[in-house]
Each structure stands twice: as C-alpha cells, then as structure tokens.
Design a protein around this nucleic acid. Structure first.
Lengths: 187, 187
DNA sequence: TGTACATCAGTGAACGCGCGTTCACTGATGTAC
DNA sequence: TGTACATCAGTGAACGCGCGTTCACTGATGTAC
C-alpha cells in the first residue's frame, strides 16, 4: 500500500527516532532491523526502501541524533548537573548519544565515524563558549578535558554494579570538573 | 586426545589471553567462540570443557585481565603520558581493558559487571596513591576525575576519524589533567 | 474537475549465513593392581 | 616398576536459531488526458 510523500518522510523520521533510542539503549549490534521497524510502526520489509543497509541506518541515525543541540543554553553548571546525574545514567535511551555510542563507533563504518567526528567538533565548540572568561588556549583545553571527563564518568557509572560507587563517580567527577574550571577564573 | 592437567591449565590460560586481546580489539559481540579457540590454537568444540557459555568466558576474561596491574609503578606523569598516547589509542588489543570494554559492560551479565566494578575500585586506589600530597577527599576526587577523563579521552580519540583532532583530544586532556592535579600541590 | 492508468511505499514469506551450543567419537593421560 | 583399563580433554560434524537482506505482491498515490 503506497503512502503519500509526506507520510513517507514522516515514516523515515520515525525509523530514525526509533533507531536512535534503541541504539542508545542497547547498542548497535543488539538491535535488529526488524526491531527498529516494529518500533517505528512498520514491517521489516520496507526498510530497504529507506536505507541501503543496516550500516547505512547506523550512519544516518548518528547524523540525525548528533545534529540536535543537547540544550543547556550556555549554562555550564546546570548542564554538568544534568549530565552527571543518576537520571541521565539510568536513561540511556533518552541520553547523550556520545556517552551511549562513542565507544562502539570505532567498530562501525567510516560514514558513522565521520558523523561522530562532526558531532564532537560541535560539542567542543559549544562547551568552549559556555566556559567562563579565559584565554582561547585555556578554553579549548578545558572544553576537551571536561567533555572527556563527562563522557568517561557516565560510561564508568553505567558499567559499575554498585550504586554507591556509581553515584560517587558522578558526584566526584562533577566536583573535580567544577573545581578545575572555576579555578582559572572563579565565578 | 586427552592432554595432561598442566597442559589443560595452560590451554585455559591461552583461551583467556586470546579472548582478552580479541575482545579489546573488536568488542564482545564481534568475536565468536570459534575465533577465540582458533587464536588459542584449539578447535571450537573443546570450549565448553572450560567455560559454561560465551557469557561465562566474557566474565572470566574480565576477571583475568583486570587482575593484572597495568604498571606505571606510582609515576603518575609517566602513566598519563603512556595512557594518552597515539600508541595506546592505536593498539586497543594490547591496551587498557577499561578503555576498550567499559562501555560494553552495561550490556553484559551481572558477573561481568561485578568484575569491572572490582577492577575500577583497584584503579581508583592505585591512582589515588600515585597522586601528590593532598587531603584524602581531594585525593579521591582527583583519582576518580582523572580516570574518567583518561578513559573518556581514549574512547573519544578512537571514535574520531580525523587524526589531528584525535591527537588534540589526547594532548589537551593530558595537559588539563596535569594542570588540575599539580595545581593542588605543584610538583 | 473527473477518469484511467502507471508508479511505488509498504507487506510478509523466504533466502542464505554465521552464530552459540551439542554430541558421538578419539586417543593420550592417569590409576589400580 | 610394568601392565591393563577407565577416564576425560580435545575434535569436528551437526543442530537450531536469529539475523540481514531479497522479492513477488498489494493497493493507495500521483499523473496524464
């Protein structure tokens, strides 16, 4: 049953949204094409009318999800608090795609790595702009260092089996970044 | 053909060593049981004489590889240099199991997560001991923050497609940790 | 605007393949005498 | 110490299953007149 061009465009968007959530929750390998299509309200056979392959879906999903501004609007302290929170740790499906998928990217296609590279560049710039007054060199160093620590902390907090240790990783990493950033130019 | 008890113990060690390298290089899902056994010089049928399942192999491999002290011997500066180096980034098979596997752990069994939890606790203690003079609270905060940044930086450096950006992530994260650690008590 | 027909997005059965796992068998090891 | 036999680590063919992908078909959409 053919659908209208508008419906087809919306279906495509729904496939990407479903894939984005499922990939973040379970990882690229653990999610099947049929599972994505079912979550989008379609059957698996129609998949290849939208994408050339599962690898193509992975790359396009990354481009789709990394294009969205994560919000925070320049308030670094609030962004840190939300990012390094139990809520973010426990909701990978709705969470940061970098924390959920970056480690998997090195086993994916070049197109997927290119999408991640572009997303990371933007993120470094965004964090740099949200930083307090400091030199351009200090700003870039703090942006990259903070982002590495934030992504690493969420990954470690999700890997750990002990809730107390997991909370501690989030809390102390936040305090450490806080101290490191504000010492250059105290708020 | 039955083998001696010593030979069987060595075979088991070789399976764990092969699995450890292959998992770090390619991830848990992308490595098959047959591939591990072949790399250990055996055939796949013998696998279940050593392990109950592939999940069991994953958990035991983590226990095996995380029990090894990564070296560095208390010299944090040298450890940082080696850890955040292109050589480490480009050799995941021989590299840090946390950087290579931590993000995958959350999709594995409880036994695997327990092994990673234990490994992380040791690592936090080791880094804490290598830190310069500071209070116990500052020491723990710096150990956890530094480790999150180190693991995050290697993961991001491996995900990125542009060698210049990848090098920059390693270099600036190292400089950032360096500044953050030595400011509390300059060397 | 209304009609007739070509187009093509989506359906669901089917395919080939690689995976984890099982099992009958082999032959060297370990042991009882 | 030497011999006869039971044990069992490793072999390789075979299994069932889920995956990515293909394809003949359907029927609503879009278009030509």
């Amino acid at each position: 049953m053919r659908v209208s061009r508008e419906q087809m465009a919306e279906n495509r968007r729904r496939i990407l949204d479903a894939a984005s959530r499922l990939f973040r929750a379970k990882g690229f390998d653990a999610v099947s094409v049929a599972e994505v299509m079912k979550a989008a309200g379609l059957t698996h056979g129609g998949f290849y009318g939208h994408f050339a392959s599962k690898d193509d879906l992975v790359a396009q999903t990354l481009g789709h999800v990394l294009a969205v501004d994560p919000g925070g609007g320049g308030d670094l302290r609030a962004y840190l608090d939300a990012y390094l929170s139990p809520r973010h740790r426990d909701n990978a499906a709705d969470g940061c795609p970098t924390a959920g998928l970056a480690a998997d990217i090195r086993h994916q296609t070049r197109a997927a790595r290119l999408a991640m590279t572009k997303g990371l560049r933007s993120q470094f710039d965004r964090i740099g702009e949200a930083l307090p007054e400091m030199s351009a060199a200090d700003r870039r160093r703090a942006a990259i260092g903070s982002w590495a620590a934030m992504v690493g902390a969420v990954i470690l907090a999700r890997a750990v089996d002990d809730p107390a240790l997991s909370d501690e990783i989030l809390d102390l990493t936040r305090a450490w970044i806080d101290a490191s950033v504000s010492q250059v130019s105290p708020s």
